[in-house]
Simulated assay, not measured.
Amino acid sequence: MASDDAFPSDKRQMIENIDRFMNDSVPHNRELGLSVVDVGPEEATLRLPYSEKLVGNPETGVLHGGAVTTLIDATCGIAVFMKLARLARIATLDLRIDYLHPATPGEELLARAECYKLTRAVAFVRALAHHGDPGNPVASAQGTFIIVED
């Protein structure tokens, strides 16, 4: 993880601002209850709380894959913003997700994404979703995002 030296002294306020931006600009994120846990110079961690309304199969209680996908996509997008260090229009070009095992019913899900490469027009991101142990991920992902300059 990179140093937080480049960030304002009030990191909590910055996280709250990013969280508000993420939920105001994408109402779907707000509806799912996504929240920003942490950010760094090229990374982000978001939380998806468990909710019965997000269950894909009522017999198992496992979260629907669409909710997990949204968590990963939003986390990757915030990581791109952190690497850019400015607001720009971005859009997901490609997002490949490998589901490694079902999410545990009743438990929140975390996702951490890192924007590891940035070109003039494309950002490259990798992510893991887990229940608190990155060594036992529920899903892993690779994504690319287009950066649209005005």
Rank of each mutant, 00 (worst) to 15 (best):
R89L: 04
T92Q: 02
A141L: 11
G132Y: 07
L54C: 09
P8R: 15
R112D: 06
L63I: 11
D5W: 10
H101D: 08
V37E: 15
I146R: 09
A129Q: 10
P134L: 08
V55P: 02
L63T: 06
D10F: 05
A44K: 05
T45S: 12
T70Y: 00
Y99K: 01
R126I: 13
D5L: 15
A88V: 02
V148T: 13
L87D: 13
T45W: 02
I78F: 00
L110S: 04
D73V: 01
A74T: 09
G65F: 06
F124A: 10
V148I: 11
V122F: 02
L46F: 03
S51H: 08
P49F: 02
K83C: 00
R12A: 15
P105V: 05
M1N: 14
N136G: 12
A79P: 00
K11L: 14
A67C: 04
R86M: 08
V36T: 11
D94R: 07
V125T: 09
F124I: 09
K11P: 01
A44E: 01
F81A: 00
F21S: 14
A88H: 04
D5F: 13
G143Y: 02
I90Y: 00
P49T: 05
N17S: 14
I90W: 00
A91N: 03
R126S: 15
F21E: 14
K53E: 14
R126H: 15
A44N: 06
E59C: 09
R30E: 15
I78L: 11
M22R: 08
P137F: 08
D10Y: 03
A129P: 04
P27Q: 10
A123S: 14
E52T: 10
I90P: 00
P49R: 11
L100Q: 07
